[in-house]
């Protein structure tokens, strides 16, 4: 039997990839358009990149977004590792069911609900505790950490499941304390997953518009908030330039990371299985 892909399926697949990539490619090309309109090619120019570099509002928002994303990703990763440790290592601990429900529902919660509900909480807390006083970057970091840790936990969990426990048991037999074992053995072994979890949480935070819009205060507009307000007013060539830079950065890092992972995995397959993998 033919194990390949039939022609109609191949065509649907090509159209599918087309839908994912054509809009972005057209935008990248037109970011070098001298004219203001998307439809009319008025010659090659990098002037929108120049104007972007002059746009203080965008640059300031970029700085805020990076600050929020770095903090949220770091907190998310720490909590994500803790959740993963609890689920993989602690068996049937108390509150397991509660924690698993709480750590998986944020993954599917509609963003508008998460945003609105957190804002209402922050306002209630401000009334009772006096904290957080107003809303700003801190409240965005808290909001992003809340769903980021759930994604981070999943990424770390699968790596932790494959972990060879005998190494840790050997260390414990030789008298190492639990924290020492964790930092000197467990963490280095799961490091790739921890990095992946951090990057995922960073991306989710950096791209979030809806939740940040609810929980941000005046003067704490992140990049997506600024982009959204500009896009609403129509197509702006500066945003083309901004999007091109961001997509190029992401593409470069994802492709580099994939090549490294692919080479490592291929090397491991070759040495352990001697080409028995199809």
């Amino acid at each position: 039997m033919n194990r390949g892909v039939s022609w109609p399926a191949l065509w649907l697949g090509i159209i599918g990839f087309g839908i994912l990539y054509v809009p972005v490619m057209v935008m990248v090309v037109y970011s070098f358009n001298a004219g203001r309109l998307v439809s009319v090619w008025a010659g090659f120019s990098t002037k929108w990149y120049g104007e972007l570099m002059q746009n203080d509002q965008v640059l300031e928002a970029l700085g805020k977004s990076l600050w929020v994303a770095v903090n949220a990703a770091t907190l998310s990763t720490v909590f994500g590792v803790l959740i993963a440790l609890a689920f993989v290592r602690y068996g049937n601990f108390r509150f397991r069911l509660l924690l698993s429900a709480l750590a998986s529902t944020p993954l599917v919660m509609p963003e508008v609900v998460t945003g609105l509900s957190l804002l209402l909480l922050f306002i209630a807390m401000e009334g009772f505790l006096g904290w957080p006083a107003g809303r700003g970057l801190d409240t965005i970091i808290i909001a992003h950490t809340t769903f980021g840790m759930c994604f981070a936990a999943i990424v770390v969990q699968s790596r932790l499941r494959d972990f060879d426990m005998s190494i840790e048991e050997a260390a414990a037999d030789l008298g190492a304390t639990q924290p020492f074992i964790f930092f000197s053995i467990t963490l280095p072994v799961i490091a790739p997953a921890v990095v992946a979890a951090w990057l995922l949480a960073f991306t989710l935070s950096f791209d979030d518009l809806v939740i940040a819009s609810f929980v941000s205060g005046p003067g704490s507009s992140t990049l997506p908030i600024v982009v959204f307000s500009k896009v609403r007013l129509g197509v702006t060539p500066e945003i083309n330039a901004l999007a091109t830079i961001m997509i190029a950065l992401v593409a470069a890092s994802v492709i580099t990371a994939s090549i490294i992972i692919y080479r490592n995995a291929a090397g491991r397959v070759a040495t352990t299985q001697k080409g028995s993998q199809p």
Binding site: P23, V24, V26, M27, T203, F206, D207, L209, P224, V227, F228, V231, V235, I239, L242, A243, M246, I247, V250, A251, V254
Partner: peptide, 11 residues
């Protein structure tokens, strides 16, 4: 890994 807001903007 790329912002869906920017991809929708491209659309």
């Amino acid at each position: 890994w790329t912002s869906s807001l920017l991809r929708i903007y491209a659309l």
